[in-house]
Design a protein around this nucleic acid. Structure first.
Lengths: 314, 314
DNA sequence: TTTATCCATGCGAAATGCGCAACAGTGGGT
DNA sequence: ACCCACTGTTGCGCATTTCGCATGGATAAA
């Protein structure tokens, strides 16, 4: 009752080439195959499509209409398969990643720029949020993968270390500690400390660092956003400590940062992928790029000015 | 390399039904067939499309994209075949007919109206012109068929009699001959005769009729359009003779018509189709309607008022 | 534990698809 | 007028594909 794709494609080729032999050469099949295919199509449809004149073929009225329809169908198949191939090669589609605001603003722009240079037809969707929300996005499938700090381990997630991000002391530029090249956690503990909110992964690590240093620190003030904390520091209300990666987010205010010595406190940014789920090809391609870009055990550079520049141009 | 239509359709069914067994019942095939088809599709594409959980199937990311594309292709096929079926049944398409102006204006409107009542999606194209041009339209393929007078026979055309159209005398309403019920060609020959142009098939027949009646008539005036001739008659410049079918075209002026006795002069309107060419299905359906409508040897009624009415409402 | 349900797979039968080779019709060249 | 080159068609055999049945393994429900 229905014409097969093979019959339709054969008919289109014959009608376009205005001949069985020419069409056969074009399709790289024998001419008899096409003869049969078209004949079968005519039998299935119950109409004569071509006037065979032994010298050249001519389309009947029904043949014209059939050609129109057959071209639609064959084109739909061809273009659909092409679409699909591109998708499966990771050349089209969407990469949905969940990540922390600092990663999104500082680390990703250059990555995305490079990625889109290679795969212009893949769109990248960034969902930024705090650690808990980020992991949730991956677990429920909203995001293909995440770049985030590693919280509690889950057997439904797989982690791959991406980069280490050391904490640095953040000081008002005219603060006495700013005269030194290095600052210790004990030094910070003696000053009014300005902390980020308890939801942030940064807070968990600063709390742990002070505890490890044997100091009990009650924040002089808290703010949800790191930029706000930066503003407080610039205003001279106290000091803080932040990973190198978030420093560019503090803006160009009157804030300086110094190396933090003593116990090396750092956060590890991981690539988090769902366990035993195959990634969409485009996402896999993005991860390949990430793997390329990371040197083993690499750390975020402390002098973050160049990162800031990149982040703004990207 | 390319997925077959069968594989794509199977996959769409399975994905929609969210299960092989349900899809198999829906498609009326065995479950193993679908299992294989989908498996083959996965092998061809090189991706896993479904997460089989033995209890229910779930689409992977690639499965989502593949479903989207597969639906496009399968729908294109389904709708294309549907289109084609409708066309081949004569339920869609175009009927292109060539015909004389009088036929187009008087005889066809009711036919077309009836036809479009049955086949609303078939559009009708009328190309009106004089006999020579009409036959040319059919010969060069512009028109599927013609309804016209029969001129010189051609072995490339096939004629089927449709209706006979007798000539009637056309007189000014206050003319002496208008007092009679019947008029002869000899009577007309004694009056100033108003003729249509030599291109018209009507002219050929009036000339022949006068010759057969043994009269030599030189037209007092000629006009290309029958309506113009009607105006001349109404103005009292002379008399004329026209087939019953064209009388409605004379308009509501001061013109009367009477039966023409003596040698029965009539023109035969034929359906003219190209020999040994198959008609487009929609055109064939129109001809079926024409065949239905004609009683054998039927003649155009002389009292043409009803035709006029129909022509105006259609 | 048992049972019912679901998908995968081995197997044989049937259908389909394919190319080779032979055949038939037609136009151009000699 | 004849022949040749080229066209599409058709008979035939082989390879592949497709299908359903029956079976097996796995899992959730009873």
């Amino acid at each position: 009752m229905d014409a097969s794709l093979r019959q339709l494609a054969a008919y289109v080729a014959v009608a376009r080439a205005a001949g069985f032999t020419a069409a056969a050469a074009h399709l790289r099949v024998s001419q008899s195959t096409l003869s049969r295919a078209v004949s079968d199509l005519e039998r299935v449809l119950g109409v004569q499509l071509l006037e065979r004149d032994t010298r050249n073929v001519q389309l009947t009225a029904a043949g014209q209409e059939t050609l129109r329809v057959a071209e639609q169908i064959v084109d739909a198949h061809r273009s659909g398969m092409k679409q699909l191939r591109r998708y499966l090669l990771g050349e089209s589609g969407v990469v949905a990643m969940a990540t922390l605001p600092s990663v999104a603003a500082v680390l990703l722009p250059r990555m995305i720029s490079a990625f889109r240079g290679r795969r212009p037809d893949v769109s990248v969707r960034i969902m930024d949020g705090l650690e808990r929300a980020v992991l949730g996005r991956v677990l429920n499938g909203d995001a293909d993968f995440a770049v985030t700090t590693v919280g509690t381990a889950s057997d439904r997630l797989e982690h791959r270390p991406l980069i280490r991000d050391r904490f640095r002391a953040v000081l008002p530029e005219n603060h006495p500690l700013a005269d030194r090249d290095e600052v210790t956690w004990e030094d910070l503990a003696a000053e009014p400390f300005l902390a980020v909110g308890p939801e942030s992964s940064v807070r968990r690590l600063t709390d742990a660092a002070f505890e490890q240093a044997g100091a009990v620190v009650t924040p002089a003030a808290e703010a949800g956003n790191v930029a706000t904390v930066g503003g407080l520091v610039a205003a001279g209300l106290g000091v803080s400590a932040m990973p190198a990666l978030v420093l560019p987010l503090l803006g160009p205010g009157h804030v300086v940062h110094r190396e933090l010595t003593g116990p090396a406190v750092e956060r590890r940014l991981d690539i988090v992928v769902p366990a035993r789920r195959t990634l969409p090809p485009a996402a896999a391609a993005f991860l390949d790029l990430l793997d390329e870009a990371r040197a083993e055990d690499r750390e975020v550079p402390a002098g973050a000015a160049w990162i800031t520049t990149d982040a703004r141009t990207a």
